[in-house]
């Protein structure tokens, strides 16, 4: 393979990653309340094949079940806030865990 082959490297552009951060916050905080409430692929199959009834909760310790923060009168705010909290927790958890893991140069 003595040919020039283009390679694709993850961008180091701060601007692009900042755009992704803004998109993430907008998706989690603003767009999420307007997501489709229809059953997803697996739920639909469970309905059609008659095993939806097998679902059985084994715990109730989730603080924001169904992506909603309890105690807020507006549904869009309940969902948007849950999305924002989730996205921030994700970033912090991964940053902490991966920083401890990744190789040093």
């Amino acid at each position: 393979m003595n040919e020039r082959r283009p390679e694709y490297k993850v961008t180091g552009s701060r601007r692009k990653w900042a755009v992704l951060a803004v998109l993430t916050l907008a998706a989690a905080g603003l767009a999420s309340p307007w997501a489709s409430g229809r059953p997803d692929g697996l739920e639909r199959v469970a309905e059609d094949l008659g095993f939806l009834g097998r679902e059985a909760a084994v715990h109730s310790f989730s603080p924001m079940p169904g992506y909603e923060v309890a105690g807020i009168p507006w549904e869009a705010v309940r969902t948007g806030l849950a999305g924002l909290i989730g996205a921030v927790v994700m970033a912090v958890l991964l940053w902490t865990a991966l920083r401890a893991l990744a190789r040093r140069r």
Partner: peptide, 14 residues
Amino acid sequence: ALAGAFIFAAQMLN
């Protein structure tokens, strides 16, 4: 870490 947060957020958008 940011990509993980983006994936989480995008997963909410059925």
